[in-house]
Design a protein around this nucleic acid. Structure first.
Lengths: 149, 149
DNA sequence: GTCAATGCAAATCGTTTGCATGAAC
DNA sequence: GTTCATGCAAACGATTTGCATTGAC
């Protein structure tokens, strides 16, 4: 897993290679996602930029364009997260899935190698090349089961 | 797995039980989804209605309202599909997960007992009681891999 | 100086809402 | 007759686009 500096260097390389321009805005968007705890929507990225970089006068359209660009060059990935629409995450992070309590909203993250392996197998069988996945288990957490007794 | 008639009867029962009104529009929307080969977006449902029931003067707002209602009473389910937005399917079909091509939008359904078992195990370890789950694998399908060569 | 990227505002897309009318009960 | 559901159009939120300006090279 690459660290922050390395990902920024990667962006510089890609931009140069494509004959495009390296801008502060693209770097800021990528930086926000690298340091994000969570998956962020375009608007959440925009809000964090206004918070952490109040001097930079970035527009929401630029955020959308930067996200599109970064996704195209595979530095970030987007997934449809439940009903909440499109969200983005840095590809420099490891993936995890979610257990969600439908009663209190608690979210527990987990990774399971066995499931990841099965997914690969299923993909192979169907001739798919997987880029990402999204998995949520909905149910009632221990605390809420106790309370409803 | 219920057949079409049974699902329609179920709708009638639910509507009566809730003291609401049974309308042709709700029946048509449900019927379209029961007989759909594929997952449909709200607009696709609307277009199919105009095609198969040209006499019925249904509005797109009614389609959205019917879909919301049917989902609430669990006769249909929705999934957020990658870039393609929200799509619906009848719950009269058996549970399955999805492989989604991020290039052409093709969807392949699958079930894997091994994964289902692992999910139960993970839930147990975290003291969750699972009620449902949602899993999508995103990637590039065989055809699209061929084309990009 | 050139050309891509930006910021802004207007446009567009999918979805929702307000309200008067029509249909189910 | 009452109440819910509908159709229409307007409103809305998220995303995209057109265009003049700015900034990287």
């Amino acid at each position: 897993m690459a660290n922050n500096e390395e990902v920024i260097e990667e962006l510089k390389k890609i931009v140069k290679q494509k004959g495009l321009k390296y801008t502060e805005q693209r770097e800021i968007v990528l930086d926000i996602l690298i340091n994000a705890e969570d998956h962020l929507s375009a608007e959440e990225v925009y809000n964090q930029i206004k918070e952490k970089h109040p001097d930079s006068n970035i527009g929401i359209a630029t955020v959308y364009r930067a996200l599109g660009f970064l996704e195209e060059v595979d530095l970030i990935a987007s997934i449809a997260f439940g009903t909440e629409g499109k969200k983005y995450e840095s590809n420099a992070k490891s993936h995890h899935d979610h257990l969600i309590c439908t009663n209190c909203g608690k979210i527990v993250e987990f990774i399971d190698d066995e499931i990841e392996k099965r997914q690969e197998k299923i993909a192979k069988k169907n001739k798919f090349k997987i880029t990402s996945h999204s998995m949520q288990l909905y149910g009632v957490c221990g605390d809420c089961q106790e309370k409803s007794k």
